[in-house]
Each structure stands twice: as structure tokens, then as C-alpha cells.
Amino acid sequence: MSDHEQERYEAELRRLQPARVPEHFMARLQAARPVAEPARRTLLQPTAGTPVWRVVLRWLAPALAVAVAGLLVGRTRFNPPSSVERKPLAAAYELKADDVQVDQELVSSFEVVAKLPGGQPVRFRCQKWRDQMVVTDKNHGVEIEQNSPRVEVVPVRFETY
């Protein structure tokens, strides 16, 4: 096939348009727009009726736990019992991560059926994830692991058969 023939044939094929998307499916796609994720930032904003100290505490507790775990691991690995010479605390625990691993684990997946205000059934695919982050500082022998749960809910077509 010469280049000219190829171009002509391509043009013929391009005249065909992909079939239009069914209306109900387009409506479903439009409704499924993923929401941007400023959620983590907004969590710090106290909602009406929630005292500020509770919001702060919610973040302070896991942060403290991680910090304490990091300190303990660092101490046990790098402070031999007979060690006489001790570095100043700030210098000893100046962490410099040389490996950061991020992992996502699917914990469970299930489906829920609900009804729209019009009575039309809609199916939701729900997935529970566990996001894991491991920060390692090999020089100081420190490994910090953080796990946080996440739930994803996606509306999908309800198959009526």
C-alpha cells in the first residue's frame, strides 16, 4: 500500500465516529467526578460543635506515638550500654531519611446498594485501603512506620437483571 493510498484509507476510517456514549452511562460518569483531596488539610479545621483541642489531639496522639517509637528504636540500636561518650540529643537524632517506601494494601472490598431519591437503585463499590509509609534512616538505625486507613467509594452501574 503506497503512502497516498494509506492516507486515503485512514481518512475513510476517520470518517467513522465512535458510537455515542449511552445517556445513562454519561450521567453516571459525570456523577463519578473524583473530588480533589484537600481532605487531610481540612481535617485540621474544627467543624461546628467540635472543640479545637479534640482536633489537635487527634493528630497529636499518633504523631507522639511515632516520635516515641522512633526514639526508642534509635536508642536501643545506637546506645551501647557501656558507651561513655554521648552525643548531644539533638545531633544524635537529626534524622535524614535515606529510604522512603509507600505502600497501599487493599484490606477489604464490598458493594452496597442504595436508592436514589427517585427510587432508582445505585450500586457503590467500597474499598478499604491501608496506606503505609516507612521512613528509614540507616545511619541512625531508625525506622518509622505509619499506617493510615482510607475508604474509597465509587458509584457504579446497577445491573438490572
Partner: peptide, 10 residues
């Protein structure tokens, strides 16, 4: 096919 498109796009 429709589920594939929706999952991939989202």
C-alpha cells in the same frame, strides 16, 4: 466495558 471506562477515568 462501561465499568472499565468509569474505573479507569476516575
Amino acid at each position: 466495558a462501561q465499568d472499565l471506562v468509569q474505573e479507569a477515568v476516575v
